[in-house]
């Protein structure tokens, strides 16, 4: 039984739901719900596990960074990174201070309800065709956890193919959803998890409102040059 090449998110979602015998309707495949899908990415669940299980003990500082091309808005980047800060640590953002330039790049310093502080660097000025750069580092009294290997600045790939015409790279992480991009896999996995347990809608909606408020606060902080308490 070969690995199936998935072409669309909808096809992949239907395939997963069928395989795992989760009842669904055609409408479910077009589900439009703020699910914070990055929470389903393996690297973030593993970072969260490292914190939750006490492998890194007593986090004190977060160092997050996410740089993309022009097609991703700063607001969307902030939404994702703020939610990841809360997901990985299990604590909520209670205050922040932001400094952006021309709505294209900048940083936010956040404080969580347990006193942990974090830097969130964001920007959408990578040239077309460049791979996104992201980093999520948790510095604790015991240990550091990160999704970037030591002594490098950029995320690694699984496959590097060096040819006369240039270098191709690939990073495939999910054999059941082979063929989809990392972001597509996050969305499909999130919808699948939601449809398996439909009771989680209130949590997602509450989190969505909270993170949107944090993003708004960051934009306001940038304008007012003030720290904002949420």
């Amino acid at each position: 039984m070969p690995i199936v090449m998935m072409k669309t998110e909808k096809e992949a979602l239907a395939w997963l739901l069928t395989k795992y015998e989760v009842p669904f309707s055609e409408q479910d495949l077009d589900l439009d719900m703020p699910l914070q899908p990055w929470r389903c990415a393996r690297k973030y669940t593993e970072l969260r596990n490292l914190v939750n299980k006490g492998t890194v003990e007593h986090p004190c500082l977060l160092r997050f960074c996410h740089l993309t091309g022009r097609n991703t808005s700063l607001e969307n980047l902030l939404y994702r990174e703020f939610d990841l800060a809360e997901f990985i640590t299990g604590h909520r953002i209670v205050a922040l201070h932001a400094a952006f330039t021309e709505g294209r790049s900048g940083s936010v310093i956040i404080r969580l309800d347990n006193g942990v502080v974090g830097s969130v660097e964001v920007g959408n000025q990578l040239p077309d065709g460049a791979d996104e750069v992201d980093r999520h580092e948790i510095i604790a009294r015991r240990g550091v956890a990160s999704d970037i290997v030591v002594d490098t600045q950029i995320p690694q790939q699984s496959v590097y193919l060096y040819k006369e015409e240039g270098t191709e790279t690939y990073k495939d992480t999910d054999s059941e959803l082979f063929g989809l991009s990392g972001e597509q896999i996050e969305r499909v996995r999130a919808k699948f998890a939601f449809l398996k347990d439909r009771g989680s809608a209130p949590e997602h909606l509450t989190q969505d409102a909270h993170i949107k408020a944090a993003v708004e606060a960051a934009l306001k902080s940038n304008e007012t040059h003030k720290k904002i308490v949420l």
């Binding site: 492998t55 003990e57 240990g143 995320p155 699984s158």
Partner: peptide
């Protein structure tokens, strides 16, 4: 050309417990 492949990477990393 040349192909370099890491079947189990990248991952996440720590120096904790």
């Amino acid at each position: 050309g040349v192909m370099l492949v890491d079947s189990f990477g990248p991952n996440v990393y720590h120096n904790g417990a």
